[in-house]
Design a protein around this nucleic acid. Structure first.
Length: 544
DNA sequence: TACGGAACGTA
DNA sequence: CGTACGTTCCGTAT
């Protein structure tokens, strides 16, 4: 892969006939290509910002280059930082390219042309800038490969990350089938909800609800049936209190509904239908833990009841398959606690926790949340707070904490596992998943609480995300790239021919299970299939 | 106009 | 003081 040619380009977002491409081979000659010629390439190419290239190919009605190696995901991984930890500047490919240009002036000129600022270069200058960019990209590419090798991550990039890129580039090119009718129905429902709430609020206050939010609604609360919340006007927790008050206060119910419906209207309006499809962008190393992200639009955060906008291609049906208790399964694999492993393999941990705390399995949902919070580093007292719904000191809190201690006391390996990870971070300055994917400290000195928490989540989530990507690749190998529509962290939206849905779903579940168990044979992971979108019947209240 | 924080959706 | 994000809106600084 060291020898893959470099492709630099200027894109043409407004279809002005300005796209330009330059291929640089290892022996140093430059070929200036048209979009059509790029589409006809039958060899791998190295690029930066592959999504721009894929967008050009789609706009030009071209097919996908067999292998596009996007340098950006490697930079993201090598940064070893979360976005909120200053990572963005580190993994920006534009910044990474800058020192590899022949001069600051050349970089500046290329940069303004690349971003569509400044005058469009003609003739010789355009060719020269593309060649300069190809030179810089080639140097950056060497640097990136060296660093990947040094960290022992190069092999994984070849086997997992780049093939996953290719799969998702294909999805970007093809887009996802989209139902404008379903979107409009959801949008209309959200608008109705917003309008109903708007009228109720305006009537209650005697002023228009426009422009109200959680930060400025406090001044009006005394005039409503939620006047007892006035004391929380300046409290950051007001939204929580308003939500809790929904059942007893019509105003609180209307206000929360107004806020949520307003957001839904915005989210759904942003979902633009382009000839029955939607074309998001995929980030293979989307998070510091290695999870895949989808943006523009951010389909992974669609509310369940708005997901009917996404549909299957003609003649196919959707199939949504997920790893059950994915993170606990990873812990079972890594923690070296035989009791925990046996409990995971033998039953439903979330139900077990519910029985341990509440005496029955009816609180599985809250216990799932609590268990995941445990995986992400939440302290036991705060889990007790979450599950008991009360503050420390109450009898209920004390009983919950006691039951919690009893439950986790059966699995001493879990706490020991966490301690090991925290110690490793303190000693070495980074933690990583089983197969790489490091996250580095940015601070010095003793670990702070937040670092202790991400030390744990990085290893668990990072290991999970790699297994998930392997599963995606195997699903694509079995059913073809057209079957894989949308990755959702521990679940995947697939589409199968109508007549084969049952068989294919079963086969896909087996593949996902086998992927996990090939990595961790001692763990019996469960894979389930369910509905991607919430059914209309589920949207009615009173149910449950 | 740019930027950080708050809010809220998903896993 | 449970992790990771994208998107939008808001208030403040420029």
């Amino acid at each position: 892969m060291h020898n893959a040619p470099i492709l630099s380009f200027f894109s043409d977002p407004f279809s002005l006939g300005r796209s330009a491409f330059c291929l640089k081979r290892r022996h140093g000659d430059y070929q200036h290509l048209s979009l059509r010629e790029v589409g006809n390439l039958r060899e791998p190419v190295v690029v930066s910002e592959a999504f721009v290239l894929v967008g050009e190919l789609r706009a030009g009605g071209r097919t996908l280059v067999p292998k596009i190696l996007d340098i950006d995901d490697a930079l993201r991984l090598l940064s070893g930082r979360a976005k909120d930890d200053g990572g963005e500047k580190l993994w920006s490919s534009k910044r990474a390219l800058e020192p590899h240009f022949s001069s600051p002036a050349e970089f500046k000129r290329w940069s303004e042309v690349y971003e569509g600022r400044g005058s469009f270069p003609l003739g010789e200058e355009r060719l020269r800038l593309l060649e300069s960019a190809a030179d810089a990209l080639e140097k950056l590419w060497r640097d990136v490969q060296d660093r990947l090798q040094l960290q022992g991550e190069y092999e994984r990039f070849e086997q997992i990350e780049w093939p996953t890129q290719q799969l998702l580039h294909y999805r970007q090119l093809r887009g996802l089938p989209f139902s404008a009718e379903a979107r409009n129905a959801c949008l209309e429902a959200a608008r109705n909800e917003k309008y109903t709430a708007y009228r109720a609020i305006s009537e209650a206050l005697g002023v228009s609800a426009s422009g109200l939010n959680y930060r400025n609604v406090g001044q009006y609360l005394s005039k409503t049936d939620a006047s007892h919340l006035s004391v929380f006007s300046d409290n950051a927790a007001l939204p929580d209190y308003m939500k809790l008050a929904r059942s007893t206060s019509d105003f609180a119910a209307s206000f929360v509904s107004y806020m949520e419906a307003s957001r839904d209207v915005r989210t759904l309006s942003q979902l633009e239908d382009q000839f029955g499809r939607v074309f998001p962008r995929f980030h293979v190393v989307g998070t510091v833990t290695g999870r895949i992200l989808v943006s523009d639009p951010h389909l992974q955060q669609l509310k369940r009841r708005h997901r009917s906008c996404l549909v299957a291609d003609e003649g196919k049906v959707l199939s949504y398959i997920d790893y059950a208790q994915f993170e606990p399964g990873i812990i079972a694999a890594l923690a070296n606690d035989d009791e925990f492993l046996a409990a995971y393999n033998g039953g439903d941990l979330y139900s077990n926790l519910s029985i341990a705390i509440f005496g029955d399995a009816d609180h599985r949902k809250e216990c799932k949340q609590a268990f995941l919070a445990f995986c992400y580093g939440m302290s036991r007292p705060n889990i007790a707070r979450l599950l008991s719904g009360t503050r420390p000191g109450t009898a209920r809190y004390n009983a919950t904490l006691q039951n919690l201690d009893l439950f986790f006391g059966r699995y001493p390996g879990l706490d020991a596992f966490k301690v090991r990870l925290v110690q490793k971070l303190a000693a070495e300055g980074f933690v990583a998943s089983v197969w790489g994917n490091r996250r580095y400290r940015t601070a010095v000195g003793p670990l702070v609480a937040k670092e202790r928490r991400w030390a744990i989540s990085q290893v668990i989530q990072g290991t999970a995300s790699l297994i998930f990507k392997e599963a995606l690749l195997e699903l694509a190998a079995e059913f073809g790239s057209d079957a894989v529509l949308l990755p959702m962290h521990d679940a995947v939206l697939l589409q199968f021919p109508v007549a084969q849905k049952g068989d294919d779903t079963r086969r896909a579940s087996e593949i996902m299970q086998a992927c996990f168990e090939r990595r961790f044979p001692q763990v019996s992971v469960r894979v389930t299939s369910g509905e991607f979108a919430e059914k209309v019947a589920d949207m009615l209240p009173a149910e449950n």
